[in-house]
Design a protein around this nucleic acid. Structure first.
Lengths: 203, 203
DNA sequence: GGCGGTACTGTACTTTGGTGCAATGGTGCA
DNA sequence: TGCACCATTGCACCAAAGTACAGTACCGCC
């Protein structure tokens, strides 16, 4: 996994290269064109706005963003994550920490650091409370048996009957039986309608 | 890193053990005493309160918590993280996903899954709404011809090939031809995966 | 003029999805 | 002890989805 450090000038802090010697270092001006797949570490210096250091396009499918903040705070972390970053950590973090961040993010995880986590979650929870209760419309699952719900969920994720049978360790015929029952109970025609219903795209 | 699956009864879903054959499986009653260092996967069944499955004490220094939720939703994820969990993923996730989650969490990261992340962030910050819709939402259509896009959109709405043929006034065979081309261009297997992609539920 | 992409269609075929009928066994309830 | 519901499975069957191979036709481009 290639790492790219992107700062105002193409200069890396010593700890960065100690952590990831193979990384390349770019100036922001080059970042639009010269960067390929991998992990992109954007340094956010004190007082800078996030929008000025992140590219407008957002990450490509084969890229992850990490924000290296000189002054990390909870609001900045939320903004970074909202802008598509997979993590946010201190610019002056130790090399071992940076390596760990790279490992986690490279595998699709999030990294916000332990000390920031509590504060971030605290403010997220507060924001959530002000939002409408989200109306968990789970009336579909209420109509189904436990096993039917399991099968339905797997269908909603685009699994085939054969895959579902293997996952639940039952025969394909039984999967079909459950599905027939699900269709009948919910008044649906096939697995695609079921998927839309479960994923909340139809009433 | 030892993994422990903790459910109402000491029974694991097949995918769990396929992902982590070395894991041990415990009932909740045993979880207080029998669990050592490593990653603790707590299954949260539909309708259960988080507090009933997580131990009151919280994780020890050498432990990480993961919540395996039968019905993952944004509020539950936030609650789980606030309660000390390092991640929250679907109980029915594929083995490869579970392995990745274990890797990330074992290295101190967070895991909430990509689709959940979007929703959580959507609740946490409005910033997201200004950003992605054009970027990611339309990249699938960019790869397709005009006719293929028409067919794909109808498929995403759960129309059958016959219905699509009637709507577009072409033969069912032509619908299939377009779809075969769409699957090939987007690297998808069938119409259900296509529907999820178009409806923005998969990357 | 050839080449590649698109649109369209046919025949034939395999695979997957879904139903009907039948059966076994378990659970919970009146 | 029945009855209803659930989970499971087999066999047979039909329909829908999807693929392989082939063919016609239009368009823009070098």
């Amino acid at each position: 996994m290639q790492n790219w450090f992107i700062d105002r000038h193409p200069v890396a802090l010593p700890a960065w290269l100690e952590a990831l010697p193979e990384a390349r270092v770019l100036a922001r001006a080059q970042a639009g064109t010269a960067v390929g797949a991998g992990i992109l570490w954007f340094r956010l210096r004190a007082g800078e706005a996030l929008a000025t250091v992140l590219p407008a396009a957002g990450p490509a499918a084969d890229q992850h963003f990490i924000v290296l903040s000189d002054e990390p705070d909870e609001e900045g972390v939320l903004q970074a994550l909202a802008a598509g970053a997979a993590g946010c950590c201190n610019s002056y973090a130790a090399p071992e920490v940076l390596r760990q961040v790279a490992l986690v993010v490279g595998n699709g995880g999030l990294w916000v650091g332990q000390s920031l986590l509590r504060r971030v979650m605290g403010s997220s929870a507060r924001i959530l409370e002000r939002q409408p209760p989200a109306a968990r419309a789970d009336d579909w699952s209420a109509l189904l048996s436990e096993r039917e719900v399991q099968v339905a969920r797997l269908v909603a994720g685009a699994s085939s009957n054969k895959e579902i049978a293997r996952q639940l360790d039952i025969s394909e015929r039984t999967v079909k039986a459950h599905l027939t029952s699900v269709f009948e109970k919910l008044g649906l025609r096939d697995r695609l309608q079921l998927s839309l219903r479960i994923n909340g795209l139809t009433r």
